[in-house]
Amino acid sequence: MILFLALITGILTTVGIFLILRRSLVKVILGLAFLGHAANMLIFTIGRITKGKAAFVPEGSLSPFEPFADPLPQALILTAIVIGFGVQAFLIVLFKQNYKSLKSDDLDNMNTTDML
């Protein structure tokens, strides 16, 4: 199952990078979202995975029983997901405003500060 997760992460990375190398700004934003998924999966996987059992302390006990999933990578990923969303939202608004003034989605039209 590690191989399986590693392969999925690899494919997500491939797609993410391929998309951010496109000239269309929308594709770049999508690519960043895919890269975000890849990064989360990377952290999740290398933090070691445990099938099924979440990190909760059961009623009437002081600490969870092994085996349970490592909560630390999960906490890191949780904030990463939300932050990734914040960045994505910012990029989408940036794209919209940019499209309004340039009428173009092509990154190669955006490497100058002069008005077209």
Binding site: L5, A6, G10, I11, T13, T14, V15, L42, I46
Partner: peptide, 17 residues
């Protein structure tokens, strides 16, 4: 771009392993 991207993908897979 596909070559660059898939090289990175393979690379990440290896990092995990």
């Amino acid at each position: 771009d596909l070559i660059i991207a898939s090289t990175m993908g393979v690379f990440i897979t290896f990092v995990i392993l």
